[in-house]
Amino acid sequence: MLTEITRKKIDGELKKFPIDQKQSAIIAALQIIQTENGFLTDDLIALAADYLDMPKIAAMEVATFYNMFELKSAGKYKISVCTNISCALREADDIVCHLRKKLNINFNEVTKDSKFSLKESECMGACGGAPLMTINNHKMYEHLTPQKVDQILEELD
C-alpha cells in the first residue's frame, strides 16, 4: 500500500490533469515514491500503476525510459556528474576521477557502506555552472573543484 502521505502528494499532482487522464501523473507519482524510498521496485511501480488505473507494463515502460529513475538500490546519496561536452571542457573528468578515488567506486556502483553511489549524467541544462553534479536528483552543486566536492560530501551524514 502507498502511504497516506504519498497518496496525498500524488493527489496533488492529479489536480493538474482531467479526471479521466490519471496516467499523466505517472512520472510525478514514480518520482514521489522514489524520493521516499531511494529507488523503485517492481512492487512499488505496480502500486503506482494501480493507483492511477493504468496497466503495470505502461508504468514500467515509464520507469525504464526516464534516466533519473533508479531501478536498483542506490546509495543513500546518489551523486550524478554531468560529463557532457560543456562540462568536459571545464574539466569534469577531474571531478569524476576525484570522486572515483575518494569513494573507491566506478560509475553505477555503490560504496560498501551503501552511503554513496556514482552515476554519469548527460547534459543537465546548467552548463554555465560547469563542472557540476546533483545529489539525489534534486540538489545541484555547480562550479565544482575537488576541494569543493570534499566539503560537500563532508557535510552529508
Binding site: I85, S86, C123, G125
Partner: peptide, 11 residues
C-alpha cells in the same frame, strides 16, 4: 526541457 549540451537559458 532544454537538455541539448550547452543550452541553459530557459533555466
Amino acid at each position: 526541457d532544454e537538455g541539448e549540451p550547452g543550452t541553459f537559458k530557459d533555466r
